[in-house]
Design a protein around this nucleic acid. Structure first.
Lengths: 330, 330
DNA sequence: TTGAAAGCGCTAACAA
DNA sequence: TTGTTAGCGCTTTCAA
């Protein structure tokens, strides 16, 4: 089959110009296997001269690995894929992926539906899977074919490589800040029960409060502004003497802030409020929200990297620190 | 070379089971080329029975096309890649890409530096390029090798396929809303000059104001809260009787809102404010910001789709409508 | 309407 | 330390 010469130089071109076989050229460029120093240098120089760029498709095909990382987001509604947090995560992953010649794509996973994981295992284009908002059940459904190619953002349950923010330490820091500021009757607005990553801070809150001999006051909520406001209302009704509220997320905290304003309480004078996530809005609102940072970019980069390096098999649980940002609300 | 049988069925397996050649099987499954109806049916059924999933890498390699879409974001700082707008765009693109078995990655382009575009053309893994915040100069630097595989978010200058929000109509709608509400002395906070997509709304503002016989009052700004506040301050100093401000983005508008509050003006009583983008914060703040929606998800999906379909060559300029969301600020 | 076979560009097992 | 060569799984000529 005669075909017009493609413009891009291939490994064969480099090898020919260097007077070696493609195998040697491959070894020289990848640093894999034995190659004499002079040959390696020559091959590399010639590759540079020809401005040779390996075809990542051919590389991946030959290495039998996929070309993209699928970010599986567990959510009740497809709309949650456009959530700020998810977008931040995907953006960071997409950036990290570029350096490796890979791409990322996102996929919606319904809670309880594990078939997408099996599908991913069957798709040879999938290099790895990054799970968000996953449950333990989902991790248990990961087929062997995908072993070592799965990482999660959140708790790993000792099953897979996991990258998470240190919500426990963040909660301790928030409570310490409040207690140091003289608050004693501190209530917590928690998240919905189906998100496992939101159970840890609640546990930390309980433990910390007990440890300080302070009353435990929790109200279960959602993740929206409205549920935050409703939660604050419930708190004030149940325990009118509450002098501080810690919320599971900034959005919840902002809802609480609004409710407090509407009910005539002064923040932070009457009630202090602390959030978590440090969304852009936190710094801009009035009063500006005291909150803990969420190093999403670092988490995404870390998780993606261990997926790309094949480090996922290590099943490491990396916890990224959060920093308390004191502003006006507490 | 002996190798353990891989678990995934290949096209060869399907062809063998159907008693045809791989060529016929390929044609039958892809619907390309002539295949008799019964053969096609048989092949498809067998493929389904075997739960055959084509290897996207092999497909792409054979078809000589890339496996990922690179989103090139022109920005002065790398940090702008973590911008809300960009994250929303990337998130939407990643979602759309998944259905096509592709991935996306992002790359930072410094203003004026066109080498990354040439690099992308040289990388056989790049299926297409999606440019954001691009300049005309950048589009002119697109090498022929990339022709028809580039799409942009923003103005296409008649060079490439372009998807954009209808900023012109959005500006007209905002001004109509203000004028209907009795405002006459309407100032505009514009964006930095190097972002070409931000010139159109300014032009629309000028045209519309002239058309109504109203005074044109523009103040050049940045895209941050601070520059928004500074812009509002300049407006009030230059034209103290200003009764409305339209801002190039929501963040700028929020900055103006804060400045107005600090200077004791009531919104919307003394001065009305309209933004653009409809960021989450717009609805949550007090007063809630009147703004125009920015259908980023639809823009990203559209741009990506025309990249994947090869429709990019059509050089179509698709303009997505924006909707005015009246809230408290105007 | 079908099949044989030549790629696509690279990696890695094996022999030398 | 190097080269030969058989894949990786699919598409697409070309001849039948």
């Amino acid at each position: 089959m005669v075909r017009s010469r493609p413009s891009q130089p291939t490994l064969a071109d480099v090898a020919r110009a260097a007077g070696v076989s493609t195998a040697t050229a491959s070894r020289a460029l990848n640093g894999t296997g034995p190659v004499s120093a002079p040959v390696r240098e020559r091959v590399r120089r010639i590759a540079a001269d020809l401005s040779y760029v390996p075809n990542p498709l051919a590389v991946s095909l030959a290495r039998r690995r996929g070309h993209r990382v699928v970010i599986g987001v567990v959510a009740t509604h497809a709309q949650m894929l456009t959530d700020q947090y998810v977008a931040r995560l995907v953006g960071a992953a997409a950036r990290e992926a570029d350096a490796h010649g890979l791409g990322v794509s996102t996929r919606w996973l319904r809670p309880g539906d594990v078939t997408p994981v099996a599908d991913a295992a069957r798709d040879r284009g999938v290099h790895g899977l990054l799970l968000v908002n996953h449950s333990l059940q989902l991790l248990d459904a990961v087929p062997v074919a995908l072993r070592g190619r799965v990482a999660v953002v959140g708790p790993g349950f000792g099953r897979v490589a996991a990258h998470d923010v240190d919500t426990r330490a963040a909660m301790h820091a928030s409570l310490r800040h409040l207690i140091d500021g003289g608050r004693r009757r501190i209530a917590m607005l928690t998240g919905p029960g189906w998100v496992p990553s939101m159970r840890q801070p609640v546990a930390a809150y309980r433990a910390s409060m007990r440890e300080h001999g302070l009353p435990v006051r929790t109200v279960t909520g959602g993740l929206s502004l409205e549920t935050g406001a409703a939660g604050a209302r419930r708190v004030l009704r149940s325990w009118p003497d509450t002098d501080a509220i810690v919320a599971i997320t900034d959005v919840t905290a902002l809802g609480a802030l609004r409710e407090l304003a509407d009910s005539g309480r002064r923040v932070p004078d009457d009630v202090a409020v602390v959030g978590f996530d440090d969304v852009p809005l936190a710094a801009l609102g009035r009063p500006a929200l005291t909150t803990g940072t969420h190093p999403v970019e670092r988490i995404a980069a870390g998780a993606l990297r261990c997926l790309l390096d094949g480090t996922a098999a290590a099943e490491a649980e990396v916890v990224h620190p959060s920093t308390l940002v004191p502003r006006q609300s507490a």
